[in-house]
Design a protein around this nucleic acid. Structure first.
Lengths: 103, 103
DNA sequence: GCTTATAATAAGGCATGACTTATGAAGGCA
DNA sequence: TGCCTTCATAAGTCATGCCTTATTATAAGC
């Protein structure tokens, strides 16, 4: 499976997107995530495994717990793939120009 | 279902990504796409329906045929959703830097 | 050492979705 | 009108994936 395929498949599931939204405010433990969503702890672990294999999250052990957080570099390959068909050169330059303009 | 959910689900399928890649070089008829991929014509029609409902492609009738093409605006909502968690300022700068680096 | 808490894995059930063949609808052309 | 081409839809099959409960491994605290 291609890298962008893994990323897209990972983000296609609504529960995994909910996990990403929880992690947007900072790293959280598995049990913490499980408490805030209507699925069991094993289900969360399975989703986190998929997200990790897609490169979207990383994790560090903390005692008996494990803190998962969003990987800032995880989205690069997906962006590159998307840009092949929709293009972002224009958008990227425009973002720079706008910022320079207002500074 | 949310808009980004539809877009991500549409792009998660490898056959639909293959269709997008075919359309990258310009609009094509259903039969034309079907001939270039190892699935039947009805399967292609079903995939095109999903891509259209996600806003990723549009179509115009041409006689008895129907020409499908990539919708340039189809990716906007997905980008906005992604940027909420990964940020696009960084990505924009990085895109510029990478291009300058390889030129 | 023993218990408790946390997380990963195993195994199985069930819904979803991607494909097939068969059929129908609509336009172009003799 | 009749025929052919193109595409969409219907119906059914089969694989994939998301969920559950049960179990195991590891670390912390008494």
């Amino acid at each position: 499976m291609t890298y962008e395929g893994r990323v897209l498949a990972a983000l296609a599931d609504p529960t995994r997107r909910a996990i990403i939204e929880k992690l947007a405010t900072g790293g959280r433990s598995v049990a913490d995530i499980a408490r805030s969503l209507p699925v069991s702890q094993p289900a969360i672990s399975q989703h986190l495994k998929v997200l990790k294999e897609a490169g979207l999250v990383n994790d560090v052990p903390l005692g008996t717990r494990r803190i998962y957080a969003i990987d800032p570099d995880g989205l690069g390959p997906l962006r590159q793939w998307l840009d092949r068909f929709w293009g972002d050169q224009l958008a990227a330059f425009k973002a720079i120009a706008d910022r320079d303009e207002t500074s």
